[in-house]
């Protein structure tokens, strides 16, 4: 039974920052509630912006709060609005990934670790629609939910100092794309030629919290063709449906 998403604790982390935290496992129900709450809160004149995690919302205030009790009351008053807020169903983005060995240095090792054939790993990785819960870690890094349990695999003992941009990793119960080169401990199972983050674009990342992502397997020939288009600026990813 899912707990009522209305039960959350409110903390004043700082005179200008409220933390709303739900004591329950991340779920689609909770995500929908967080997204709705964020929309309602960001409409309040006293709120400048909100940031999200799996089970929490950080609310930045315009000026120092005089009392936490006042805010608790206000949040209670806002709840009916949150419940009536139309749920963001999210757009669906299909991200092309090349799983060939040259682009997937750890695919064989991961397949062995989870006792599957490499093509079965690709099959399982591409058949899921993942939900974007929020962005964090690096600009344009999507926290994705929905990895098939058969692909759960502990992170590498020794993290790589430099995982290249666009590489798709699997680590623990998560999968994700490195939007820029960074140190990382995930198993590298593929690469996308797409840019997940571009500071010159508005918005800088095509996906937002609540969107859906799926991976589409492409061969190296298509990878190179797509990369060429991207470099020439003649490719723009469009949401599916």
């Amino acid at each position: 039974m899912t707990k009522n998403p209305l039960n959350f604790r409110v903390l004043a982390l700082h005179p200008k920052v409220l933390l709303l935290e739900w004591d329950q496992e991340p779920s689609e129900t909770l995500l929908a509630f967080l997204l709705s709450f964020q929309i309602i809160l960001e409409k309040q004149v006293k709120v400048t912006r909100c940031t999200m995690g799996y089970q929490s919302l950080l609310v930045h205030l315009l000026v120092d709060m005089k009392s936490l009790a006042w805010w608790k009351q206000r949040l209670l008053e806002l709840q009916p609005k949150v419940e009536n807020q139309t749920v963001n169903k999210g757009r669906h983005w299909k991200i092309p990934i090349c799983y060939e060995p040259e682009y997937a240095p750890d695919l064989l090792a991961l397949a062995e670790a989870v006792q599957l054939k490499p093509e079965e790993v690709v099959q399982l990785h591409t058949q899921t629609r993942y939900r974007v819960y929020f962005l964090g870690f690096l600009p344009g890094f999507l926290y994705l939910n929905g990895l098939d349990k058969r692909l759960y695999c502990p992170r590498k003992e020794k993290p790589l100092l430099k995982v290249p941009k666009g590489v798709v990793g699997i680590g623990g119960m998560q999968t994700g794309i490195y939007p820029s080169s960074s140190p990382g401990g995930w198993h590298l199972v593929g690469t996308t030629p797409l840019s997940l983050f571009d500071a010159q674009q508005q918005p800088p990342c095509f996906a937002t919290a609540g969107d859906w992502i799926s991976f589409e397997s492409i061969d190296s020939k298509n990878y190179k063709a797509l990369q060429k288009k991207i470099n020439q600026g003649t490719f723009r990813l469009k949401p599916h449906d």
Partner: peptide
């Protein structure tokens, strides 16, 4: 903890 938003000074 479940990954959560943080801010300078945390």
């Amino acid at each position: 903890i479940w990954t959560a938003p943080v801010l300078p000074g945390t």
